[in-house]
Amino acid sequence: MTIIKEVKGRGITVPGADLDTDRIIPARFLKEISFENMGNYLFYDVRFEADQTPKQHPLNDIKYLGASVMIVGRNFGCGSSREHAPQAIHRFGINALIGESFAEIFSGNCKAIGVPLFTASKAVLDDISKIIEADPSLELHLDIEKKQLTLNQKTYSLTIADSHRESFLKGYWNVLTLLKENTKKIKETSNNLNY
């Protein structure tokens, strides 16, 4: 069980509301039977022309190279249940996201692979984005226990779902072990069903 208490790293902002999983990773890349290469396809059609020339996009911007905390807008990750989306984000090098709000299945998928999601108001997010843009070399320090971000000597309080916070702090985000402990109760529940 891996405990995750904090995430540290440089930041990058990917602006826009309702960024759906088809945009995070277009369906044609879902044909691979492993998640291994998914990081290469992150936001592919937004980042590259049909002939693969890079477009202007924060993820193509050299000054954000190596960033590991992503700042996003509202309803991020809406759309399909494809875990390829958080896998692509994580494998690209992102270890935590801060956004206005996240779609539900996406949020569960992120927890399941050990990527904490925090929410904050638009004003706070704009503030953070401005600081990062002015100096992309600054390190963000996300503290899961305290539910806060420290950046450039400033501290912001953030929100994280209680169950997710518990899961990271106790190492239960990989929930399989917990679920397996209840084998007997699972059997009982199954036997009582009447459809």
Binding site: S81, R82, L179, K185, I186, T189, N192, Y195
Partner: peptide
């Protein structure tokens, strides 16, 4: 209620799944 196996230490509920449907794209991994 009928599918709740237990309350987990994370505060979440462990829920039994009566029917599981699978297809080719989201299962290989």
């Amino acid at each position: 209620g009928a599918h709740k196996v237990d309350t987990l230490p994370t505060g979440q509920d462990q829920i039994f799944i009566g029917l599981h449907l699978i297809h080719e794209v989201t299962t290989p991994q």
